[in-house]
């Protein structure tokens, strides 16, 4: 008797895992198709650049404050923690290098992408989801206007444009925050801070690679947010779940992509 219930519950669990796998795969395929269609119907986003510009405003400009404030704090914490460790080895001048390299290579692109997913990604998902729920996308279709060209593609390109800008700002503001802690507060030498940094941060290997990372994250985060909104069940619950999924999937994707990109860039 006990054996048979165990048996049934195992089968049920396996079946659940299987159906979830199928569901995930299906969504992956649908997402890839939306990505492809977005690229195909991107012409209008550039021909009528005002459409894209408006979305740059609502994704990029609206994320400025959170990016700048977070970058400032992240930079200050990095300087504090870095100093704490580095002064034990008598190389507190290297604090500039530590702050700059951490920000430019990793924290700038990654934290920006995570904040972007939370700030702009959720907004995109909720907006598209609600447009679907209130039949705005259907209405557009019925007016012979392609919603992918008119709604999805401009938002996609706006995200791809905004992300590297935000990430560069994040790195720069973070370094300034680190400078404020290291130089006036702790008393590290001003010249050593900058010169060590310049000696060790390579423009192509570190800064350009950081920008490339942020562009890739921009594509991933924006596309995930758009797909989740476009695919959301047209109910209040459906949109709220899609919004949550945007944050979860974007964050995981960004971290995984970061590992892959870093391993390529470090050429190990």
């Amino acid at each position: 008797m006990i054996k048979s219930t165990l048996h049934i519950s195992i089968i049920r669990t396996l079946r659940g895992i299987g159906s979830r796998m199928i569901e995930r795969t299906w969504r992956l395929g649908a997402g890839a198709r939306l990505f492809f269609l977005t690229l195909v119907y991107s012409g209008e986003s550039f021909r009528r650049f005002n459409l894209t510009l408006r979305e740059v405003y609502s994704t990029g400009v609206m994320s400025l404050l959170i990016i700048i404030v977070s970058a400032f704090f992240v930079g200050m914490v990095l300087a504090l923690q870095g100093y704490n460790t580095l002064q034990k080895y008598g190389s507190s001048e290297a604090i500039g290098v530590l702050v700059a390299l951490s920000l430019v290579r990793e924290l700038g692109p990654v934290v920006t992408a995570l904040l972007f997913a939370g700030r702009a990604g959720t907004a995109i998902t909720a907006e598209i989801g609600l447009m679907k729920t209130t039949e705005q996308l259907s209405a557009m279709e019925m007016m012979a206007v392609n919603p992918i060209a008119r709604v999805i593609a401009p938002r996609f390109w706006a995200g791809v444009i905004s992300m590297p800008i935000l990430a560069s700002l994040f790195s720069m503001v973070g370094i300034l925050g680190g400078y404020l802690v290291a130089v006036p507060l702790i008393g590290v030498d001003d010249g050593a801070f900058w010169s060590q940094m310049q000696a060790n941060v390579d423009f192509r290997l570190d800064i350009v690679n950081g920008v490339i990372k942020s562009i890739v994250f921009g594509v991933a985060c924006t596309m995930i947010a758009l797909f989740e909104g476009y695919d959301a069940p047209p109910t209040a619950e459906g949109v709220s779940r899609a919004t949550t999924r945007t944050v979860v999937i974007s964050s995981l994707t960004v971290l995984a992509l970061d590992f892959i990109l870093t391993s390529f860039m470090l050429e190990v």
């Binding site: 430019v104 720069m172 800064i207």
Partner: peptide, 9 residues
């Protein structure tokens, strides 16, 4: 800023 002040460009 990154290129000039931080990097070695």
């Amino acid at each position: 800023g990154l290129a000039m002040k931080v990097g070695n460009l």
